[in-house]
Amino acid sequence: MFNLLRVVAQRLALGLFTLFIVSLIIASIVELLPGDITQAILGQSATPETVAVFRAELGIDRPVHERYIEWLKGMVTGDMGRSLANRREIAELVGVRLSNTLFLGGFAAAIAVPLSLILGLLAALYRNSIFDRGVNLFTLTSISFPEFFVAYILILFFAVKAGWFPGISNVSTDLPLGDKLFRTLLPAATLTLVVVAHMMRMTRAAIINLLSSDYIEMAYLKGIRPMRVIFHHALPNAWGPIVNVIALNLAYLVVGVVIVEVVFVYPGLGQLLVDSVSKRDVPVVQACSMIFAGVYILLNLLADIVAIVTNPRLLHPR
């Protein structure tokens, strides 16, 4: 038990260290700015005063470490500075959008996780059957599709042709939950289609891998019913890899959300990030990147820790 705690603590420390390095990279990216960046962003017609204000805003005139500490403090306390484009508080811009993005991601995960587990389990059980081949072909193609292609196909059929769902999901905070779910159904379905393929394939692989081991064969030879073999012998050992796969895909979902938000004009963090990139609004891009990277790293860390906790063998690396 003590050993377990120590390994988990080690992983946590490593994760926090990664987070720290990543924050250093994101904060220092401003240093990469070419000398004439103020010209590039503000345009040729910028007056010397606006250039000076802009430079002070980015803090280019102060020493690096001072600027970094201040930025990090701001990120933690929620005072992230102001946007260059419209002078609004970044925290204010980010707040609602972050919860919208988490809502969309959570909704997609709630559909995708059970669906892919069931499909993966069935495909592993009926390996090389028509069902398995069909699911395999379907997932291989859906992995190959760009997200926006899936999104527009869904829009074309369900929003334009059939008219069942709105093609634009403009949710706001005061909307009742039912309406909100209805409007986010198409983007959530798009994300589901993209993620299910990965999760289902990895679940299938994990279970097939287990089914080929000796103790499962032994169980079959003893004459135990197939269902019992799966649930009592195979599944307990498969939870580790499966939960790992789920966490990794949730991390993927966090990023995949960017494109889907743009297609459906969903007011989320991804949309804000993309808009700010095209406006070259550096502080907003930094804040959004840090949030995305933070969630991504934490989910990966979670996957790591779950893998260790569920698989005692990893406790004693070599």
């Binding site: 990664t18 990543v22 990279i25 994101i26 990216i29 991390a251 966090v254 990023v255 960017v258 990030l273 993309v274 990139v277 891009v285 930094q286 959004c288 990147s289 995305f292 990277a293 991504y296 790293i297 990966n300």
Partner: peptide
Amino acid sequence: AIPSLVFALL
């Protein structure tokens, strides 16, 4: 450790 889309955008 950084999602590649986010890094590229940055």
